[in-house]
Design a protein around this nucleic acid. Structure first.
Lengths: 339, 339
DNA sequence: CTGAAAGCGCTTACAG
DNA sequence: CTGAAAGCGCTTACAG
């Protein structure tokens, strides 16, 4: 495999000049540059990343930490990140913690510190104070998507207010018996968004002088299956049923819709459902929801990182305030049935 | 940040000994090893991957090339790969081509050759002869999941026969008017599985002396939305309708089910649907399908790679023959309606 | 079992 | 604008 010396020899210049011509750092005459490029092409020369990184201290490699890639939000954010990174000529090192504490520890103590990464993007990862300190001490740019992390630039939507608005939408339709389906305890390690959404829900009820009924505060694991099971058992209870449910994600809302269908309960006639995300399938399900553009959150995270690395200017700072969201009323919400 | 020399000094040994003690290569006395480990820990020393890779020629970094991470099969395979790689102490470099030819080119000409990777796993990626040659010339282990690639170890399910069996299941129930929903041309670049599945479908019809009707050979882009649209227009046609559809993926089958529901067509009473995959949601939808364990395909791809890298022995070779699949009959299939 | 030394393949002041 | 040389932080024959 051709090395920089081979190219230098073929082009009749020094290795230093080859490096400068190919990287764009430093001045090289156009004629020389052309000769070098030609020689490199002929030899099929590709720079050794390891050698280049070692010598320069920069890796052109960004770490991305996600709790899982099998949920809509994460895979969509990841696609946005991946596309933007490829365009910028950066590598993407993926850390899927699988929600396992053990894997998170190794990610932080080892991988992130191995100097192979120029920067890190974390997605809805809740960090301990200690981890924040570790990240800070490494002195590499970090951008977080989803969960707020002190001292770190964060892209996030307004979980509290969007959920409150969704809840108010139901209240305005006349609902007074409203359930909430959030994430489970177990997942709160990584997905800290649950509490903000639940807070927004409770706030809206409170504003309307409606009581929060503990037995209607449900938790699943952000999956459609989990939600299906929870809503199924909610609907099968003999006692008084809620007439609507606020789900903390669209994927859980799908589970709620399927459960209602299997129970022969008419949506929205007998039961209203709202979600949160703007999942690709929300339109097919006719789901009323708040949409957030996950893909572009990923893209903007990369842009912010590149800015922090001094690669480019930012037209606007995505970590400034809340990321835009949009309320979309569709056909899973209606006034509650007459008693 | 502490380097190897700092550790050497603190432990009172040479850098060479530190390297041997920490990496496990070469003999080191237990006492020395303990001292080195202690010193490393106290200093918070972490080896520089770049330097280590450059010196040793090995990166502990595996490249994974996927067409997208936003479809069930890919994200599930990726999770399997990611977990197994973390356990083995390897990094995962993700290349999401986004189905774009442009990105694939840069992946192959640049990224894979930059010597930063020890091996590559490709997922349902159709490679040109030229690309196969490129990969071979780099002389790094490659394992493919999904699509068959000449000269490369491949983990794959029997697309032809599973689809044929699914089709025969419908035929045995009495169906004679059966449609097929495969992938679109556009996607065949990356997803070469479409043709094998369609071939299996046509073979089964042929065996039963049933005619393949071109107007019932449909193609979507492997998404639920795409399938919804296709099936919707199929069902809205005034002329003779099929009584069943074979979908080349579960996600497309979901679209078919939702379309039927929105048309007030009873499944399975008036219309039968079969999928292919064993998607997490297939049980909720009651979908009859062939399940394949995508996660463990990812895990086994990693194990095969590690074997090729000389890291471990394999109990069984996943690239040997077809990966196991399982037929699961559920409630979306039944005899066709009486005419 | 351990150390001194060469070398991995680049990048980047420094000097011209 | 270009080259000679040092250096990035490790690993690994080689010698003992």
């Amino acid at each position: 495999m051709a090395g920089i010396k081979d190219v230098a020899q073929r082009a009749g210049v020094s290795a230093a000049t080859v490096s400068r011509a190919l990287s764009g750092n430093g001045k090289v005459s156009p004629a020389t540059r052309a000769r070098v490029q030609q020689a490199a092409e002929e030899l099929g020369y590709v720079v050794s990343f390891n050698a280049s990184s070692l010598a320069s201290g920069r890796s052109r490699n960004i770490g991305v930490v996600v709790p899982t890639v099998s949920r809509w939000f994460f895979s969509t954010v990841l696609e946005g990140i991946a596309g933007e990174l490829i365009s910028a000529g950066y590598d993407l090192t993926l850390y899927d913690t699988g929600g396992q504490e053990q894997h998170r520890v190794s990610v932080f103590s080892d991988l992130l510190l191995r100097k192979r990464l120029d920067a890190v993007i974390t997605v809805t990862l809740k960090l301990s104070d200690n981890e924040v300190r570790q990240l800070a001490s490494v002195d590499k740019p970090v951008v977080a998507i989803g969960g707020f992390i002190p001292e770190i630039a964060t892209i996030r939507v307004d979980d509290f207010n969007t959920t409150a608005l969704l809840t108010e939408h139901l209240i305005e339709l006349g609902h007074t018996r409203i359930a909430f389906l959030g994430g489970s305890e177990e997942f709160d390690v990584d997905f800290k968004l649950t509490t903000a959404r639940q807070d927004g829900f409770e706030y809206a009820l409170d504003q309307a002088n409606l009581e929060v009924r503990p037995e209607w505060l449900l938790a699943a694991n952000f999956t459609t299956e989990g939600a299906y099971r929870k809503i199924r058992s909610l609907l099968s209870m003999p006692r008084e049923r809620p007439t609507a449910v606020v789900c903390a994600s669209d994927e859980m809302a799908f589970g709620a819709l399927l459960a209602a269908r299997d129970f022969g309960i008419d949506v929205p006639g007998d039961f209203s459902v709202v979600g949160m995300d703007g999942h690709d399938l929300s339109e097919l399900f006719g789901l009323t929801t708040f949409s957030q553009d996950a893909r572009s959150q990923g893209i903007w995270a990369v842009r912010k990182i590149l800015e922090l690395l001094g690669e480019r200017e930012l037209e606007r700072d995505p970590t400034d305030g809340f990321y835009p969201t949009e309320f979309i009323a569709r056909s899973t919400t209606a006034p509650p049935p007459r008693p």
